[in-house]
Computed example of a mutant assay.
Amino acid sequence: MTWRGSITISDRIFSTLVYCFAIFDTAYFGTYLVQQFPAFNFLLLPAIPVGLTYNLVSSLLGPLGRFGSFLVFIILFAAVVRNDRISHFIRYNAMQSILIGILLALGGIIMQFVLMPALRGGIIIETLFNVLFLGGLAASYFSMIQSILGRYAEIPTISEAAYSQVRW
């Protein structure tokens, strides 16, 4: 949907870059699949600058550095999503990237505190990790490709939530 206004090259670039945060969040779930298929490391390359930035923030802030992901969420939400001077296309994609990250974080919490203690590891946990990893990568890369093409990525439920949060 490009009817919301003209989408410049810089809008496309910045909208693509925000999905590097979602890929970084996805990397946690790739441990099993990346061990079996090291070629998947290639798909995690966009997350390297984000990881380096988080490490820098962590070293600068000390004990508060472990909240780097939360700080990035607050900064992206306050400075990008709620900033009316930034184009709708960038704000929408930033919000969608945040929502992908939130879903992955919720999946991680459920896995860590509910499923892993109940199931004590095994094939079911590995399968769920792989599903979250591949789903997060698919959603992120699909959205990146759509952003490069200048289109709004439509992911069921996530896109609707992103539209509802981004003001005109």
Rank of each mutant, 00 (worst) to 15 (best):
L17K: 03
D84K: 14
S15L: 04
F14W: 14
F70N: 00
V57M: 13
Q36I: 11
A22L: 03
T53K: 00
I13M: 11
F21R: 02
Q36V: 10
L71F: 14
R85T: 13
T16W: 07
G30H: 09
F14C: 06
A79E: 13
S10A: 15
F89N: 08
R12E: 07
F42W: 14
F24G: 02
Y54K: 07
Q35E: 15
Q36N: 14
F21V: 08
L45K: 13
P38D: 11
T16Y: 10
I13L: 15
P63L: 04
G51I: 02
R82Q: 14
N41K: 15
Y54W: 06
R82E: 13
I74S: 02
T26N: 05
R12P: 03
L64M: 11
L71T: 00
V72I: 10
F89K: 05
V81M: 07
V18N: 02
A22E: 04
N41T: 13
I23D: 02
Y54L: 04
V72M: 13
D25L: 09
A78Q: 12
G30V: 07
C20E: 02
V18A: 03
L56E: 03
P38L: 11
D25F: 05
F73P: 01
F73C: 01
I74N: 01
S87K: 06
N41E: 15
F89S: 05
F29H: 09
R12K: 15
L45Y: 13
L64A: 12
T26Y: 06
F77H: 12
V80W: 04
L60G: 05
V81F: 06
Y32T: 15
S15C: 05
I86W: 05
I48L: 15
V80S: 04
I13G: 11
I48A: 12
F89T: 05
Q36P: 01
L60I: 09
I23K: 00
L17W: 02
L44H: 10
L60M: 10
I74M: 10
S10L: 15
N55V: 00
S58D: 06
A22Q: 03
F14R: 09
R82S: 06
L61G: 00
P63S: 09
F89W: 03
T31L: 11
L71R: 00
C20S: 15
V57C: 02
N55F: 01
L45T: 14
D25P: 00
N83A: 05
P46C: 10
R85P: 00
I48D: 07
A39P: 06
V34G: 08
T53P: 00
F73I: 10
D84I: 09
L43K: 09
L33K: 08
I13V: 15
F42L: 15
T16P: 04
G62H: 04
S58I: 00
F42M: 14
T16A: 14
V72Y: 04
F89V: 08
I74F: 06
S69C: 01
R82K: 15
G51E: 11
S10F: 14
F67N: 07
R12F: 09
G30P: 08
Y32Q: 13
F14K: 12
G65K: 01
Y19I: 00
V72N: 02
L76N: 11
F40E: 12
